[in-house]
């Protein structure tokens, strides 16, 4: 009876794609830095100012599997919006070659730019209702710091990664990275522009590996 059950299981497994069968999982926790100070908007020379305060974005980390992986034929378009004078999301990890849209959801101009070596661009000033929405393709790995030429306090980050395997932590630093290929790799945790922690890992099919970055 037990032998018959195993045969059935083998037959069912044969119907699943090999990648699913081979997938591994890594989970754990990244020690995040303490919260940033709340941003302050300089309103000195604005005749009209609104009340209210800027939202504070908690620090987050990006965990990714470093290695050499084939580039997919197409990648979904991602988005970094400008709303309430902040970038949403404040940090966006993307795969190399991804196109990112920058919609302006405020009723004021923004002027998004980056002088980062990984991507240098300046979108200029554009209205919220303008179509097409300005986009950029990020074709060099590295950290791209987004700023606004009009609102000095605005900062956003795009982390361009040469891997399809990445995930953001939650605000407590917990992460879970599914669908990883089996093998020997390096798991990295990007924490800020100066801090990236890494650990060599051996991933096995169907197993969950626990990795912490203290």
């Amino acid at each position: 009876m037990r032998r018959q059950g195993l045969l059935w299981l083998n037959a069912i497994c044969a119907l699943f794609p090999a990648t699913v069968l081979a997938s591994a999982t890594a989970e754990g926790r990244v020690e995040l830095p303490k919260s940033h100070s709340a941003p302050v908007q300089a309103k000195r020379y604005e005749i009209v100012t609104k009340a209210g305060v800027l939202s504070t974005q908690p620090p987050l980390a990006v965990v990714y599997l470093d290695g050499s992986f084939p580039q997919p034929a197409s990648l979904p378009t991602k988005e970094v919006a400008q709303k309430d004078l902040t970038f949403i999301p404040a940090i966006l990890p993307i795969q190399l070659g991804t196109k990112v849209e920058f919609p302006n959801l405020d009723d004021a101009y923004h002027n998004i730019f980056s002088y980062s070596p990984a991507k240098r661009f300046d979108l200029g000033r554009y209205r919220p209702d303008e179509r097409p929405i300005p986009t950029q393709v990020f074709d060099k790995p590295g950290l791209v710091i987004l700023r606004c030429d009009i609102h000095e306090h605005m900062r956003g980050l795009i982390l361009v990664l040469n891997t399809p395997y990445f995930v953001m932590t939650d605000t407590n630093g917990h992460f879970r990275l599914n669908g990883l290929p089996a093998g020997h790799y390096t798991l990295k945790a990007w924490i800020d522009s100066r801090t990236t922690r890494e650990k060599p890992v051996e991933l096995k099919s169907g197993q969950t590996l626990h990795v912490d970055f203290p």
Binding site: S37, A38, P39, V40, A42, V53, H153
Partner: peptide, 15 residues
């Protein structure tokens, strides 16, 4: 970042 301070649950922010 070092010159930006906040206190009283972010009710006082200074830069």
């Amino acid at each position: 970042s070092a010159l930006t301070l906040s206190a009283f649950q972010d009710n006082l922010r200074a830069r």
